[in-house]
């Protein structure tokens, strides 16, 4: 439960602010000039703040929609991401947000209309062609904080009404009520991330169990929603084969795989600076004492032999259930891009 809410003065009285404050009627309200005063100062400790994060309500002023990293797509020609929220209510040790942000507070941008205007503008400017993809779970979990954000309640109908855009909701949560209470849209994908249960137990804190996520997918499929499977990041342990074989079997045998929209995978990787920051925050974490090294692409990742073997193994597992056309190996795309960049191809 949030005990402190920081609110920008400029959005005082905004209906979304009023509604959220009424949900946390015991929280202390602290007014600020700009969210950056609270979120950005250097003298903050992400790990300590994660014990009791505050909620920051702010208005985003610019850069509403960004192009995704080139290896992040699902086959679309144009791919964008937008972040209504920075940080996540979960606490996954492999998450790059721990290294990217100084603060663990949940920063929610409440000016959804400005995001939708920016998206409309991008779509108007680009002309015709294949639908553009918009990814919403890059800097947060798309659905986990839905009871507070009502992000999906706003954006799912917005995208559902458009034929020129697709939306990916990326989540580990079971907050699917807002989807179950409306007609499914074919261009909106609820993509669930998975890690084998034993690895999740060690690294994913406060996250619903694999079984709960599978149940949520089953419910969504039953009423016609498109779902996606995300195995990213793949985490290496000495007996990873057994863990991932069990996971893929458990997930894929529990849903209608013929109706899965897409599956993507990629191994654990992270920009070097984020990695260094996280090592300082969690010096005792086994994940950051494992066989990870700096690659030619500037990312900290598993050594090539481990990475390639693991990606191939999980790809083979998935291909037993999913046609090749639906499988997106973000790592291989990235390796190909890196190889090209460094003149190796």
């Amino acid at each position: 439960m949030v005990s402190t809410i920081y609110i920008e003065d400029s959005i005082r009285g905004h209906p979304r602010v009023e509604r959220i404050c009424s949900q946390f009627n015991k929280a202390q309200i602290v007014w600020c000039d700009q969210y950056t005063e609270v979120f950005n100062p250097k003298a903050q400790n992400f790990r300590l703040q994660k014990r009791n994060p505050a909620l920051i309500l702010a208005a985003k002023r610019d850069a509403f929609v960004m192009q995704v990293p080139s290896n992040y797509g699902l086959g679309g020609e144009q791919n964008y991401y937008f972040s209504h929220m920075l940080n996540c209510i979960y606490d996954c040790r492999y998450c790059f947000l721990q290294g990217m942000f100084r603060s663990a507070h949940y920063l929610l941008f409440i000016n959804y209309d400005d995001f939708s205007t920016a998206i409309t503008s991008i779509l108007s400017d680009r002309g015709s062609g294949k639908p553009a993809w918009f990814f919403s779970g890059y800097d947060c979990d798309s659905l986990a904080y839905e009871p507070v954000t009502r992000f999906a309640q706003y954006f799912v109908p917005f995208f559902g009404a458009r034929s020129d855009a697709c939306l990916e909701l990326r989540t580990k949560s079971t907050q699917i009520r807002c989807l179950l209470t409306q007609e499914p849209f074919p261009n909106v994908i609820a993509a669930f991330s998975f890690t084998p249960p034993d690895i999740a137990k060690a690294l994913e804190h406060r996250v619903p169990s694999v079984q709960s996520r599978v149940n949520a997918m089953q419910k969504l499929q039953r009423v016609g929603w498109n779902i996606g499977l995300r195995f990213d990041p793949l985490i290496y342990v000495h007996n990873y084969r057994q863990h991932y074989a069990n996971l893929v079997k458990e997930v894929c045998s529990s849903i209608d795989v013929s109706r899965v929209h897409s599956v993507s995978l990629g191994s654990f990787r992270m920009p070097k600076d984020f990695f260094k920051t996280i090592v300082k925050l969690y010096p005792h974490s086994p994940l950051y004492a494992g066989p990870v090294e700096l690659g030619a692409d500037g990312l900290m990742a598993y050594a090539d032999d481990i990475k390639d073997e693991m990606l191939q193994y999980v790809t083979d597992l998935l291909l037993q259930w999913i046609p090749h056309a639906k499988l997106f190996n973000h790592e291989q795309e990235q390796n190909a891009i890196s190889a090209k960049k460094y003149g190796l191809m």
Binding site: S3, Q28, D33, E37, Q44, Q49, N52, A54, S103, H105
Partner: peptide, 9 residues
């Protein structure tokens, strides 16, 4: 302005 983060009560 500064905002001391309130992690403990």
């Amino acid at each position: 302005n500064w905002y001391p983060p309130q992690v403990v009560k």
